[in-house]
Amino acid sequence: MNRIGNVLKMHQRDKFAWLIIPFMILGSSFVINLIVGFLSGVGIYTGGLMSIFIYMFVLGIIVLPQTFPFAISFSVRRTDYYAGTVLHALISGGFTAIILLLLSAIEKATNFWGTGLHFFHLPFLTDGNIVQQFIFNFLTLVLLFFWGFAIGSVFRKFRAIGLFVLTLACLLATTIMMVLIISKDWWDEIANWFMDLTAFGLSLWFLPIILIFAIVSFALIRRSTV
């Protein structure tokens, strides 16, 4: 536990990557939208909130090149590195999810910042109750982190050639899926399935995907070298 704690400490020391940069990006996106909202005078709905989710994906990719060679060289076990990093991402995801809920509540309470700007409090995302909203935020952030982390670990283990093969495989899989969907005429069913989903329901579907990413990245990191 102490060894995993050391990995947590390692990430905590990098406040820039985990705290300052994501909220700076989100903050500047918000400020720009707020100014636009003021000037235009009409209520706008914006996707600026996406920025923090995308950042989580980027963070998942860059955390490995940033810290893996360092940690392994400083006598950290791969297993402990993995556990500590995942734990830190979960804590960070939970923290961010709560902050987003708070901002959403503030947005609603201030009557959308007095300008009609819908930045944090968006339809569909805020349909469920507070716990469901939290779970959606949390699981989406975690999914994106693990997605990036899995890509990062493919690169770590198999370098550029691995990423290239992976990309080709994904393209191939998507094409086959498309062909299948079109030939079997499944479009309507798929569309309906998505229409019926709530944000919360959707986020529960993220769980198995997160699990797959987690297993893949663990297996790869255990065999990665500096």
């Binding site: 990098d14 820039f16 990557a17 940033q66 810290t67 060679p69 360092f70 060289s73 006598s75």
Partner: peptide
Amino acid sequence: CFIKESQKYPDNY
């Protein structure tokens, strides 16, 4: 403890 010539550190460290 292994100290090497080109040890990498996290950018923000």
